[in-house]
């Protein structure tokens, strides 16, 4: 599998908006690649304010949730902030079932995620 860019990055003032390009965040090797690209935003690029945009995402497994949790820890450890946005209702239910809606800051859309960041 190629390791093409799996995140479309946008800079809005000092906030990085990373939009997943995949419809399905499933399958171990795929999730590994996406996870590494997420982590590099913090580890290599030292970005502090990050919004993850789920507009394109139709499926997401528990392994992907694991990467998001690790990402959240990395961002917090570096003194930054992470927000999630534009999550469709099926996937939002996954966050609610696992109570991860309490761990993450989730906003309805990109504009609301950027408000007061």
């Amino acid at each position: 599998m190629s390791s093409n860019r799996r995140l479309d990055l946008d800079e809005v003032n000092d906030v990085t908006v990373a939009r997943f390009t995949d419809k399905k965040i499933l399958d171990e090797s795929n999730i590994q690649i996406i996870g590494n690209q997420l982590f590099s935003l913090v580890d290599e690029d030292h970005r502090q304010k990050i919004v993850l945009d789920f507009t394109n995402v139709e499926y997401l497994s528990s392994a992907a949730l694991g990467k998001l949790i690790t990402m959240d820890k990395k961002v917090k450890a570096s003194g930054g902030k992470l927000r999630l946005c534009s999550i469709r209702s099926d996937i939002l239910e996954v966050f609610k079932i696992t109570r991860l809606d309490k761990l993450f800051t989730i906003r309805e859309n990109r504009e609301k995620a950027l408000e007061g960041f």
Partner: peptide
């Protein structure tokens, strides 16, 4: 996985999702 002490663990949610 939904217990407060486990909430930040990156794994252990698969069975719960299947059940749900």
């Amino acid at each position: 996985p939904t217990a407060d002490e486990n909430l930040e663990r990156p794994c252990g949610r698969g069975i719960m999702l299947m059940r749900a």
